[in-house]
Design a protein around this nucleic acid. Structure first.
Lengths: 219, 219
DNA sequence: GTCTATATGAAGATAGAC
DNA sequence: GTCTATCTTCATATAGAC
């Protein structure tokens, strides 16, 4: 049997909120596809494996989704929407200070990647496999998440509370740092999700030259 | 024809050093596979497309590689070795100070990701597709790169020049930030590779709580 | 080392009964 | 909505001539 030396991501559970999950067999297909696509990639997972995982025949899948690509499209859409939702939720309770906002943004961003690592891996890593027709919506939602951070960082620069030479590069660094969490986090990790989010929020502020000294204690 | 809304990575050239590239047709196969695997993933690219790109028949590939998986294994190995080489080269000229060493490490890490974005994407993103037999060597080399940074950060903490609550989390953040560069960098990017490396080195020091204030000028 | 031809299986998807 | 059966295309890989 095939034995990979490295898993694509550490998580093993295909977490989907009830709110994300369609009822009945359609939801079971979506959850099984999430796990398969996250672990082996969209192209590396077959319709037959997916049917096996659900416990139905391959032909039965087509009563729920018109094609394999449509399953991926739904997962990508859910993933990007959950990311934007998580960021917005985190930003809701917070004030006008760009420093507070960056910290909240990163907490929300990281929280999504720890709560739904497979969703994050599929949404971010398999979007390229979608046609423009099926992937366009996801790409647009993603753009909103990025733009939100850009705007916050720009305000912070304008107010003189951040100090970086280039907005885009700071956003890329902060985003990239958070994105990778989905690949190594599991609920069994020795560091808790909330702690990781807190530390990454502090790192983001440090990147932006806005960290309060001594904000983090050793652990 | 299939039109993806998002490319998997921005780069379009399959850069391989002469030192990486075997002579003759074997080298042409490797370069063509690099581009295909980077853009569509290992599972998403076929032997037939690869042969087409080289301008030979599919059967002729097997005179050079015993299987598709062996082509990927060679690319992963080259990628991880180039990463370790680039990091070690950057560390060579530098002193004992962990701050200098972190900055050098990140410059080398980022330089590899800007010089060989496709190699980085394939080596990091497709390692999971290899069996333990063919992927083991790459995984071991990767571990050396990570351990090198961990050691530097630990020394900095011991000497009191860094201030982070957890070594592993800082290494994950710094590494993740650099890794993502391969996905958006192209030689046509408005920011030059050397500049990006310099800024990311500064970000790494900031993450570690060791940045000299005002080290970066606006641009 | 490259070719033509082909073996063998797996892929995504459909037809039509129940 | 699920099944059995199957279509068609594509996959990786091999055989054997030149």
């Amino acid at each position: 049997m095939f034995q990979a030396p490295t898993r694509r991501l550490a998580a093993t559970d295909a977490t989907l909120l009830p709110a994300h999950r369609p009822p009945g067999t359609r939801g079971e297909i979506l959850a099984a596809a999430l796990k398969l696509f996250a672990e082996r990639g969209y192209a590396g997972a077959s319709i037959r494996e997916l049917a096996d995982a659900v416990g139905i025949q391959p032909a039965s899948l087509y009563a729920h989704y018109p094609s394999k690509e449509h399953v991926l499209a739904e997962l990508c859409r859910i993933g990007h929407e959950e990311q934007l939702r998580s960021i917005r939720e985190a930003l809701e309770g917070c004030g006008e200070d760009p420093r507070e906002q960056v910290a909240a943004y990163v907490r929300g961003h990281v929280a999504m990647h720890t709560s739904f690592p497979m969703l994050a891996v599929v949404a971010n890593g398999e979007l390229h496999a979608l046609s423009a027709k099926l992937g366009g919506e996801s790409a647009a939602v993603r753009q909103q998440s990025v733009q939100t951070l850009k705007d916050i960082v720009q305000r912070g620069l304008d107010q003189g509370v951040f100090e970086v030479p280039n907005v885009w590069l700071a956003v890329a660094a902060i985003g990239g740092m958070g994105l990778r969490v989905a690949y190594w986090y599991t609920p069994e990790h020795e560091l808790g999700a909330q702690y990781i989010a807190e530390v990454y929020a502090e790192y983001a502020l440090r990147i932006l030259g806005a960290a309060a000294p001594g904000a983090l204690r050793r652990r």
